Each structure stands twice: as structure tokens, then as C-alpha cells.
Deep mutational scan, measured.
Amino acid sequence: AKPPKTVTVKVEVTNADGETQTRTVTLTNLPKDLKPGDTVTLPETGQTARIVEITP
């Protein structure tokens, strides 16, 4: 079996106070056609994050 493909992405997350924070997260099994501006759900927090940058 192939190991899951991990991708490092820079995302913007809005916290409970309405502040936008930029975080770098490593995600696995992202859709192939994901692009900056799309939103993903962070598995560890369940927060919705907007992708700023994808590092191949």
C-alpha cells in the first residue's frame, strides 16, 4: 500500500474572537484539484480554514 500523500498548506483560520490567523498545517489525502482560496476542515480542530498557499 502506498503511504498517504501529505501536503503542507498555509491556511487562514478565523478564531472565536473573529481574528484571522495564518497557520501552516500538514494534511493528508487532499483532493487533487485543491487550490488556494478553497476551504478545508482542519481535522484536529474541526475549524474551517481557507487555503492561502499549497507547498507541493
Rank of each mutant, 00 (worst) to 15 (best):
A1G: 11
A1L: 12
A1E: 12
A1F: 10
A1I: 12
A1Y: 11
K2F: 13
K2H: 14
K2T: 13
K2P: 12
P3N: 08
P3W: 10
P3H: 10
P3T: 06
P4V: 13
P4Y: 05
K5F: 15
K5C: 11
K5A: 12
T6I: 10
T6D: 05
T6K: 09
V7A: 07
V7S: 05
V7F: 15
T8D: 05
T8C: 08
T8N: 06
V9N: 00
V9W: 02
V9M: 11
K10G: 01
K10S: 04
V11N: 00
V11I: 10
E12V: 12
E12A: 08
E12M: 13
E12Y: 09
V13C: 04
V13D: 01
T14P: 03
T14K: 10
T14Y: 12
T14I: 13
N15H: 06
N15Y: 08
N15G: 12
N15V: 06
A16P: 09
D17F: 12
D17I: 08
G18E: 02
G18D: 02
G18K: 02
E19V: 14
E19Q: 12
E19C: 12
E19G: 09
T20P: 05
T20H: 05
T20E: 03
Q21C: 10
Q21W: 15
Q21E: 15
Q21I: 15
T22D: 02
T22Y: 15
T22F: 15
R23F: 15
R23L: 15
R23H: 08
R23S: 05
T24E: 06
T24C: 07
T24V: 14
T24N: 04
T24Q: 05
T24H: 06
T24F: 14
V25S: 01
V25C: 10
T26G: 03
T26F: 10
T26R: 10
L27A: 02
L27S: 03
L27C: 07
L27H: 02
L27R: 01
L27Q: 01
T28G: 08
T28H: 10
N29S: 09
L30A: 14
L30Y: 15
L30F: 15
L30S: 09
L30M: 14
P31Y: 13
P31W: 15
P31R: 13
P31I: 11
P31C: 10
P31N: 12
P31A: 11
P31V: 11
P31M: 13
K32A: 14
K32W: 14
K32E: 14
D33N: 10
D33H: 12
D33F: 10
D33Q: 08
L34G: 02
L34D: 00
L34S: 06
K35F: 05
K35W: 04
K35P: 00
P36E: 08
P36V: 15
P36C: 06
P36L: 13
P36K: 07
P36Y: 05
P36I: 15
G37V: 00
G37S: 01
G37N: 03
G37M: 02
G37T: 01
G37C: 03
G37E: 01
G37L: 01
D38T: 03
D38F: 03
D38W: 03
D38L: 03
D38V: 03
D38S: 04
T39S: 08
T39D: 04
T39L: 14
V40H: 01
V40R: 00
V40P: 00
T41C: 04
T41D: 04
T41S: 06
T41V: 14
T41Q: 08
L42G: 01
L42F: 05
L42D: 05
L42W: 04
L42M: 05
P43R: 07
P43K: 05
P43S: 06
P43T: 06
E44G: 13
E44C: 09
E44Q: 08
E44A: 09
E44V: 09
E44I: 10
T45I: 06
T45G: 06
G46T: 03
G46R: 04
G46L: 05
G46N: 07
G46M: 06
G46P: 01
Q47A: 05
Q47L: 10
T48D: 06
T48A: 09
T48F: 09
T48G: 03
A49T: 01
A49P: 00
A49L: 05
A49R: 00
A49I: 05
A49W: 08
A49M: 04
A49C: 06
A49H: 02
R50E: 03
R50D: 01
R50G: 01
I51G: 00
V52Y: 02
V52W: 02
V52P: 00
V52L: 14
V52H: 02
E53W: 12
E53Q: 09
E53R: 06
E53K: 06
E53V: 04
I54E: 01
I54A: 02
I54S: 02
T55H: 14
P56E: 13
P56A: 14
